[in-house]
Design a binder for these strands. Structure first.
Lengths: 340, 340
DNA sequence: CTGAAAGCGCTTACAG
DNA sequence: CTGAAAGCGCTTACAG
């Protein structure tokens, strides 16, 4: 039943020229007469010709496909980066293949095999939370597939990266809390095998030290940073004899969890305890009090990641040098950390 | 510099058999000796062979690619559906090409041309807000590309669809507000050329009528349903001499906007006015009061859309019949609509 | 400026 | 159970 697809050949026959001429005319080859180009384009229109990108990909070795790997597409930060990536690469004629690792190393490996089989022209990835070995990403390098890491990156892997300055974001956030008069600031931290959480922890500690405040181990609680982890962490902190007067969270979800517990225990935010999040998820502004957060300019991160991968694709092996772009974090101060 | 890729041919040569034998062995063809299969698999491993999906696609006519069209990937509802789609089709060996229309008809058209060129095996789409003509989607049908609409669907288009029962969701939500004692319920509605907003409006009206309450035009405000529209709508409603005692919003974003204005004007939700949203975006549960909403089971919608497109792909033209699946909405009652 | 020819790496009837 | 052969629909050096 399938209607026969119109091919280059059909256009060539109809115009009594060769397929090569048609191909060149369609791709607007410089050494082609305008007359032929016009005729070809007109006939292509008439016959309702749709180029077969698969055939072109096989022949040219360019699939015009970029693989994107995220832990989960429905986490707001990732979905925004995805949006940014798609916008940028789409303008350059590339499509995005979206994949999700669910923070599983096995899935990450499977995905990389699939992307390799699909012959994507490049890959943009945020590492899974549990990923501590990188052989599967090495495979991409071996096969010369341009690779860019964003947000959850590996240092010194020889590929371009884009991240927000997590150290600075954390340092500034904690310094802000100190300026508000907080003396005992807790940190709901992520696991420190991830560069970005390690850096946020460092920023937190430095800010305390620079203000001559002690760094207390019991005030630093590591977790997966889900909302539930925020609730648990907050319960733990509020159970202390000497309660903290501020909580710096490495994730907005964790910050919401902390806020919920505060509400449930009738502890007033920010009067009794201030809360600061990270990522500036849109919902932080919907809450009451709004949660202060560190903006990571996720859409810009997506644009940047897209540009980096396109650059790498266009470069020859010899002239390529990995770029490590660090975006500036912006503090978004809301009522959860304001002195009234 | 590009290392020569290992192909089927290389395996064939190494084993002194034909490429066809290798191909059959790799795809686990039933009429192939286990001995050959083992030898081929071992050699493939040894040579670090990566199948070329592009070549397979060209030859077999199956790209193993599913195009997904959403207005924006970073709207929580869509990102969840995308997550569901990816999970489902990935299990069946398909990859997702993610595209965004930005609610622009022109982009929708461009996307469809790209997907056609990429020879995707199927398309799953949510219509753009402004899309009122469907020739570009007709093209997919003409080319026999299986198509599934979700959420923002077209009726009687002859393709499978999956949606939530918007009429019922709205009817139940408004009925709930009436049970709470509300007598004057406003509706922040979407544009009614979209089936789903039309159905929510119908559900709203029916619920009022069934409770012998009047349907008042001035209480129905149409908009694009962004947060800002919720703020504006709420301002308009609160400016009335006879204020509504409840607002049923066709979007959670609009509901947040309404809630913000209430807060700013020191109007207590739910005591003075109740608020009900639609979509059950995660953030509705983070707010205080939590906003009641209609859950659309977005991940399940994604799974269903994925299954529908796979079914269509597997079917022959003769035995295919479009399915229209209507998921049951679930009311999630939070404090914004509870009588205390 | 245009054409002839080869080939990208697979899969799939067909034959035996 | 295995092989020989054709071909999917393009693009790209090469020649003229």
């Amino acid at each position: 039943m399938e209607r026969k697809k119109v091919t280059l050949q059909d256009i060539a026959k109809a115009l009594n020229i060769t397929p090569s001429a048609v191909s060149k005319a369609l791709s607007d080859h410089p050494r082609m007469s305008q007359k032929t180009k016009d005729a070809v384009n007109k006939m292509a229109e008439e016959l309702n010709y749709k180029p077969n990108q698969i055939a072109a990909a096989l022949r040219s070795g360019q699939s015009k496909l970029i693989g994107v790997i995220v832990p989960a597409a429905n986490i707001s930060f990732f979905s925004s980066v995805i949006r940014g990536i798609e916008e940028t690469v789409n303008k350059a004629g590339y499509s995005v293949i979206l994949t999700q690792s669910d923070d599983s190393v096995k899935k990450e490996k499977d995905i990389i095999n699939t992307l390799l089989a699909t012959r994507v022209d490049g890959v943009i990835a945020a590492l899974g939370l549990k990923t501590k070995k990188y052989q599967h990403f090495e495979k991409l390098k071996e096969e010369n597939v341009p690779l860019v890491f964003f947000d959850r990156i590996i240092k010194d892997f020889g590929v371009s990266t884009v991240e927000v300055d997590d150290y600075k974001g954390a340092y500034n956030a904690v310094s802000h809390l100190i300026e508000q008069g907080c003396k005992r600031i807790a940190h709901l931290a992520g696991h420190s095998h991830m560069e970005l959480y390690k850096n946020r922890l460092k920023g937190y500690k430095s800010a305390l030290r620079d203000a001559s405040l002690p760094v207390e181990k019991e005030l630093i609680i590591q977790s997966d940073l889900h909302l539930e982890d925020g609730r648990n962490g907050m319960l733990q902190l509020l159970a202390m004899k000497d309660r903290p007067d501020a909580i710096f969270c490495s994730s907005d979800y964790t910050a919401v969890g902390a806020l919920q517990i505060a509400r449930e225990q009738n502890i007033i935010v920010p009067d009794e305890v201030m809360i600061f999040g990270f990522s500036n998820e849109p919902f932080t502004s919907y809450l009451d009090p709004g949660i202060s957060s560190v903006d990571q300019s996720s859409i810009i991160m997506g644009h940047t990641a897209g540009e980096l991968v396109l650059e790498h694709i266009k470069s020859t092996n010899s002239d390529f040098t990995a770029k490590n772009i660090v975006l500036n974090p912006t503090l978004i101060i809301r009522n959860s950390s304001k002195n009234f």
